[in-house]
Design a protein around this nucleic acid. Sequence first.
DNA 1: CTAGGGTCTGTAGTTGATACAGGCTCAAGG
DNA 2: CCTTGAGCCTGTATCAACTACAGACCCTAG
Lengths: 137, 137
Amino acid sequence: MSNTSVSSIRRGDLARATGCNPETIRYYEKIGIMPDPPRSTKGYRSYDDTHVRRLKFVMRSRALGFSLEEVRGLLGLVDNRIQTCAEVQAMAEVHLGEVRAKIADLTRIERVLSETVARCTGDAAPDCAIIDALFDA
Amino acid sequence: MSNTSVSSIRRGDLARATGCNPETIRYYEKIGIMPDPPRSTKGYRSYDDTHVRRLKFVMRSRALGFSLEEVRGLLGLVDNRIQTCAEVQAMAEVHLGEVRAKIADLTRIERVLSETVARCTGDAAPDCAIIDALFDA
DNA sequence: CTAGGGTCTGTAGTTGATACAGGCTCAAGG
DNA sequence: CCTTGAGCCTGTATCAACTACAGACCCTAG
């Protein structure tokens, strides 16, 4: 009597359950991030809980900035095949380093840009401090 | 006697003078960021100082994170046509806002990611704190 | 005279999706 | 019962911003 019915849902339902664009689901299947789901007699994709869980995993990984190739690596451990935990940790650390590098880059850009914008008077003259800065930097 | 010789340089020279990939120069010409340069009798592109200056301008703008469409806008004032200084200032401020938003995003990602990585023991066990976090977040 | 480097063109690949076009199927309302 | 609209199917095109060929010239130094 337990509610273990593996309720079969369609692509739109999976999209709504995860917040993922339906087209993106198809894309993930094409590149092998998501498995090819079983089909109904009429060819409709048929998903269940495992797909919801896996797609949410992918989306959280993406939200943390992992590339799809990195996600593929993470899933390698999930699928209990390729990766070990130590490898996952190493990958996450590399990724963390990249995130920090990006922050450093953008912070430098932010500083230069805000200084430049501050120097601009904003009137309609043909001279522009921003343009000058870009030319003479 | 002044050295005003408009020395004609080739694509590779322009690339070396600016640090820009030669293929990228061709691309910028195709999309109209850089003008179609005059050609030698044999069809070789022929550049001068103005091209060096303009390409450096483009590259500095790109280095500050402006999109090519934004660079096109900036060049609109350089070319003394479309944009006013006030419009350039407004654009730069919008861009600055986007940069700050990206920094905020990445900082949040950095925090979550470093917390997650810290929780990982890094041994070879099939359990992995990183994977678990991505599943259960 | 030939070997190498540079140049020319057009085209395809990259990442991570998103957006059609053209056709099928399905459920609800009249 | 029929229509209408939503959803699904496929394949393909598009976006940013480049990068990387292939195949053909050309030019110069040894």
